[in-house]
């Protein structure tokens, strides 16, 4: 019962936030609203008993992506100071809204064929899941089952993912940090030596 109420409320907040994001023009405000969006989705994941997904959402959605979006804003904007007043919307984003609504409707239509939430007879639960639930602790010694699957049973898969994420991270760092003048580092080193 209470789960349903919390679910509905969080989803309502989520919808409100999304509409606000679509309607807003100030990019900075939009990034802040994305932070709220991520917090809300994490709340939903928690209600659905998926702590690992909520963890990822916390680290990636609320933490890294907010910082990355802000950094992108900083790099693409010329004025050094962000004005704190905001302009009103210049045009009405009806076309994107329609596109999104149609896509969303198609996705919702697709969910009708999905087995209901937590259904023990769903295909995802009937094949290997039972094996992992019964044997993962004995075979790997890792108490968290999701970690056991990711780091042990699908270790090579995860290794590949880590390589991809690492490459992406290095690329983003090069893009964002590349504009830092080299002289600063050199001078700073010199300054530290002087202090020492």
């Amino acid at each position: 019962m209470i789960d349903t109420i919390i679910n509905i409320t969080l989803l309502a907040f989520l919808a409100t936030t999304s509409v606000a994001i679509v309607r807003m023009t100030n990019l900075f405000a939009i990034v802040m609203l994305f932070g709220i969006f991520s917090l809300l989705s994490a709340g939903l994941f928690v209600v659905m008993d998926a702590p690992d997904v909520a963890f990822t959402e916390a680290a990636v959605g609320a933490g890294i992506s907010t910082v990355l979006m802000l950094a992108t804003l900083a790099l693409t904007r010329n004025s050094s100071k962000t004005p704190y007043t905001e302009a009103s919307p210049a045009h009405r984003p009806w076309l994107p809204l329609i596109v999104v609504a149609v896509t969303g409707a198609a996705l919702v239509y697709g969910t009708w064929d999905i087995p209901s939430f937590g259904d023990p007879n769903a295909p995802a639960q009937t094949h290997v899941a039972r094996y992992y639930i019964e044997n993962s602790i004995v075979e790997t010694g890792v108490p968290n089952m999701v970690t056991a699957v990711l780091a042990s049973y699908r270790g090579f898969d995860t290794l590949g993912e880590v390589a991809v994420v690492y490459t992406a991270g290095v690329a983003v760092l090069l893009l964002i940090g590349g504009r830092r003048p080299k002289t600063a580092v050199k001078l700073k080193d010199k300054g530290e030596q002087d202090e020492a």
Partner: peptide, 23 residues
């Protein structure tokens, strides 16, 4: 984790607003 991440997010936002960059 959220208690910590939220703080980092806010400080990053403020750094951008006051300084205009992340240098």
């Amino acid at each position: 984790v959220y208690a910590l991440i939220n703080f980092i997010g806010v400080v990053a936002a403020l750094k951008l607003v006051t300084q205009g960059n992340f240098h």
